[in-house]
Design a protein around this nucleic acid. Structure first.
Lengths: 189, 189, 189, 189
DNA sequence: GATTAATCGAGACGGTACGTCTTGTCTTCGG
DNA sequence: CCGAAGACAAGACGTACCGTCTCGATTAATC
């Protein structure tokens, strides 16, 4: 990608401003107009780079809070999952990432392009890392050959997103641990 | 001269119009203005009843598609959950309820009052019914005394909402069955 | 509990409230709605009596500040005119009558019915009194038989209204005296 | 795609539309909304230029009917005044200027900023021209050194405005002539 | 005194316009 | 020649009044 250094500097400044405003006023009150004004940029300059405020914010979030959610591999899959999901939950459940991420998912419900982007650039990579770590464990025999990797992923993520988006209860480490126990030790039915 | 119906007649007519427009144009393009115009109502009449288009749509959805998601009790808890969650998934995963419900959850991400309403009037009642049915089963000894009711609820709901809101994969009966099997038979870890 | 007065008592109370509000907020911010609310009256009760806020205010002004602008007849026409026009100018040039009267004339520019009422109930009676006093003087020989009564009237009133409505300079006794001198002694052309 | 004219072209088009609508529907029924719609302009574009419909109409009237009321100087002050006031009366007493001018004066009664503008941009310049012509005559000795210029001005204008705004009798040349005669020949008191 | 009939308050209702805001496109002009 | 600055059309926002209309509750006049 051949962007002039001046261009990318401009781009970064705008993204920084977007996050700043997002943090201050919340996503709902954020407008391309306001970001342009605050950043001292023309609106055209924003629209040239991002098609919507959702795209701008997604980009800003990923560039400036580039989440480092890579999996450790200590040999103990449960411990590794625990480590990593605790980190994920700390990221998603707290400012500044959390509220903006929630807002982006909200926006994505009426904007299919944003939904696709969000999936492609954040959700899918994360889920794939988790599935990959589980697969490694299954290959090593830590998990039964019939272990349903995708379903396990969903059982871990789903309840967290449900809390984040629906009930808005806090995402705690304790809750993650309950989920892991249920997943690997069973519900005791 | 045409007399405007008062009170609840007016209210219902507006809600019907709101859903109609919601179905036609989608939530994003819906405006209080348009609903008022189509319903032949003054804007004030809408704002007198609902503080936002989110509130209007939530109300419309619940009044006019009053979901009948009561649990059967055949004595077999797994079969009963299956019956009921299949029904829930048919409702949430298809028009007209599905898309509008998704949109409302989206809107709720920037509107705390709507989020609270959504929980109070739809989500919480549904989860409580599920938890109640599970509790009955536990009291009868169908489930172990240590069975974590809330967690089970979350394991069933979470992945469905994750599909609905994040990955937008279809909500199938088969997927529900996979979840139920995982919950009651374990993951085979 | 609260007793609603009927008939003319109600009417007077509303008029009093109208003037009160007019004084406080100015004519522009006055609304039938506000008068009704402040007076603890239904809007219907106002519209039953007056077709517009202009009509209400005109009525209120004339009933509650019933101007006593009758002419003295001391035998000296100039002195009598002077007395009376000084009084008129004190009324029109000062609160509460002045500002509301100005506003009514303003409103009358887009409301022909109000214009007609204003003329019939206030302006014409006043001019006729002046003309009558002048006619008496002419009949007594104080003025020449060719003296143009209507024109004299206009020369006295016109400049005062011009100040009131256009330049908004104060209406002073001194200015009235200058006008009277010009009228009776000539401009010295 | 149609390109919207910018700047002064847009401004003129809007003013033309405003007068057009003013003529058709009258000032009272005129709305910023309607002007914007008819002109194919956004409402913001109107509000960017004028703070109120009064300001818009005043501007429109002065730009598009720029009254040419300059005084001739034939050496005969009475004849010159007569010529010029006849012209003024033709302008003020007839459409399209007359009714809109009346409406503006009406509006100015509740809008001090409009009142100030009206004075500054129309009334004062006209009166000053008249006073200047009279002053020239006084300096030449056509009028007595004691001749009260401002008062003469008021005696000529006042009755005309009185007719325009209060009694709504027509502004005729004959009436102007009566006024001039009274002013220069006296009332014959 | 009981029964009408009118009058009242309260405020819902369909409308219209307000003045503000944001969106995404298009122009202008300075560096 | 690019980019800031912002003009522009479009149209929704939420508010304010308009004048009409129900709705019961009071009140006064008639029986």
């Amino acid at each position: 990608m051949t962007v002039s250094p001046r261009g990318s500097a401009r781009t970064e400044a705008i993204m920084r401003t977007a996050l700043e405003l997002g943090r201050e006023t919340g996503y709902a009150k954020l407008s391309m107009e306001a970001v342009a004004a605050r950043a001292g940029a023309g609106k055209h300059t924003l629209y040239r780079r991002w098609p919507s405020k959702g795209a701008l914010l997604l980009d800003s979030l990923l560039h400036l809070h580039a989440p480092d959610l890579d999996y450790p591999d200590t040999g103990d899959v449960v411990a590794d999952l625990r480590t990593q999901i605790h980190a994920a939950v700390d990221l998603l459940g707290n400012p500044p990432f959390g509220p903006l991420y929630r807002a982006l998912i909200g926006e994505a419900q009426h904007d299919p392009r944003l939904a696709a982007d969000l999936n492609k650039r954040f959700v899918t990579p994360q889920t794939e890392k988790t599935v990959a770590r589980l697969r490694t464990a299954r290959e090593r025999g830590e998990l039964s050959p019939a272990f349903d990797l995708d379903l396990a992923m969903a059982v871990l993520s789903g309840p967290l997103y449900f809390r984040l988006l629906i009930t808005q209860e806090p995402l705690t480490h304790a809750y993650v641990d309950r989920l892991l126990r249920a997943l690997f030790d069973g519900m005791g039915a």
